[in-house]
Amino acid sequence: MEIINIDNASYYYKAYNDDGTVGRAVGVENVTLSIEEGSFVALVGHNGCGKSTLAKLLNGLLVPASGKVTVCGMDTSDKNNIFEIRKNVGMVFQNPDNQMVASIVEEDVAFGPENLGVPQPQIVQRVNDALAQVGMSEYAKRSPHRLSGGQKQRIAIAGALAIQPKVLVLDESTAMLDPMGRREVLQVAHQLNRGGMTVILITHFMEEVLDCDSVAVMDGGTVVATGTPMQIFDNGTLLNRVGLRAPRTVELAHLLKNAGWNVTPDCVDARTLGGEVCLNLDQIK
């Protein structure tokens, strides 16, 4: 079932031309995209390609200038829907320090349900559940300030979960993290997805895209390609044009396959690929 529908949506930012007149800059232009409930979708593209603008269209932080964005059957341009839409779309942003509203972890997670007017005993329940889901229960009473980047982002995810959304949007939530932090966040995202959550992962780390159901590639404000991760990785010309590159292992596997080696072209693990290459060399001997 479709949970989000983006129909030919465009959004422009106000921008000043060199001569001082007011013009506009493309945020996104004529984007059409459908997202299935329960899927794990990656949105990739270089910085400034419009992927974060698109994210903000998903929960009505921005409203399209033309076209339409529908979330759970509700039009985001109708102001009466905004509250209901945001209840369904949880969003986590890039900078972990800039989305904390309280100086105690559990207080921060409680912010969403407090806004919704959830009765007190249920808030406690929601906060505890959300923290458990991201594996941060033991940090409930701590200050977020001393935690690692990955832990902070897991708190931010818990903050979104406490609203009990159907969709979780990670808007470059891994961009500022070290590899360990990125792993933590992705693990949580995949685990939530297995529990039925629709996840939209916005990123430019192609390694993170490997385990997604589908990928939408953005460039210049539009979606230029959609497909499975492997379909996208196969298209070297496309990736090159939009300034991305496949994970190194996949790149090497493709090169070898094209040169006639007997290797799995979609190999994502360098050690497996190494083993395959050894077998090839043995056979030649």
Binding site: R248, L252, L255, A270, R271, V277, C278, L281
Partner: peptide, 25 residues
């Protein structure tokens, strides 16, 4: 461990030596 190092390590374990400059894909 970098991807290309993982790859090279498997080859080495199988007795295949690679030149030292195999760092990029």
């Amino acid at each position: 461990v970098p991807a290309m190092a993982q790859f090279a390590n498997v080859l080495e374990a199988n007795g295949i030596t690679l030149p030292d400059n195999c760092k990029t894909v």
